[in-house]
C-alpha cells in the first residue's frame, strides 16, 4: 500500500470526512490550535528565555520548568489532537506538502531534544546551583526556541504551498543572497 492510498483511506473515513465538511467545527479546531500557541507556546517561549537567562531572572529556571510542566503537557495534548484533526481530514494534500513533512520531522527532533537534555536540564533540580545557569541550559533553551519557531513558521507555510519545487527554489534564492 502506498502512502497515497493510505492517506486517502484515512481522510476518507467517515470521521475525517465529517470533520472536513463541517462548516463550523473545522475552523473551531484551527482556532483552538492557534489559541494553544498563544497560551502554551507562550509558556515554551518564556521557559526558553529563562534558560537563556533573558527573562524571569528572579525565579530559578528549575522552578519555572517544574511549575509550567503540567500546563505544557495539557497544551501539548490539545495541540496534537487539533493537529491530527486538521491534517487527518486533508491528508491527501498534507502528506505531499514539504512544509508539513518538515514540521513533522522537526517535532520528532524536538522530542529527541527533550530526551537529550532530559536529565541535565529539564529534570535537574540543582540546575540553578551556584547562582549561574550552566551553558547547557542556554544551549537547550536556544535550540528549543529555534525548533519551535521553525515549527510555527512551517505550520503557517503549509497553507501557502502550491509549488512542488517551493523549498528547492527557496534554498536557491537563499544561496543567491549569500
Amino acid at each position: 500500500m502506498s502512502i497515497a492510498t493510505l492517506s486517502h483511506a484515512i481522510q476518507s473515513t467517515g470521521f475525517f470526512t465529517s470533520v472536513r465538511q463541517s462548516e463550523l467545527f473545522y475552523p473551531t479546531v484551527m482556532a483552538t490550535h492557534l489559541s494553544c500557541i498563544a497560551v502554551f507556546g507562550g509558556m515554551i517561549l518564556m521557559t526558553n528565555l529563562r534558560l537563556m537567562n533573558l527573562a524571569l531572572k528572579h525565579t530559578p529556571a528549575s522552578v519555572v520548568i517544574e511549575s509550567l510542566r503540567a500546563w505544557k503537557r495539557i497544551g501539548f495534548v490539545i495541540m496534537i489532537t487539533c493537529g491530527i484533526l486538521l491534517a487527518g481530514s486533508h491528508l491527501d494534500k498534507y502528506y505531499v506538502n514539504p512544509y508539513f513533512q518538515l514540521k513533522l520531522s522537526l517535532l520528532v527532533i524536538t522530542g529527541i531534544h527533550g530526551l537529550i537534555f532530559h536529565r541535565s536540564v529539564y529534570y535537574n533540580a540543582s540546575l540553578d546551583q551556584g547562582g549561574k545557569l550552566p551553558a547547557k541550559a542556554a544551549i537547550a533553551g536556544g535550540t528549543s526556541l529555534i525548533l519551535w519557531l521553525t515549527i510555527v513558521i512551517c505550520g503557517r507555510w503549509i497553507a501557502y504551498y502550491d509549488d512542488p519545487n517551493a523549498i528547492a527554489n527557496l534554498l536557491r534564492r537563499l544561496a543567491h543572497l549569500v
Binding site: 492557534l34 500557541i37 507562550g42 517561549l45
Partner: peptide, 14 residues
C-alpha cells in the same frame, strides 16, 4: 503575528 501573540497573550495567561 503568531509568534508575538504567543509572547503577549502567553505571558498575560501566566
Amino acid at each position: 503575528h503568531i509568534g508575538s501573540f504567543a509572547l503577549s497573550i502567553g505571558t498575560i495567561t501566566m
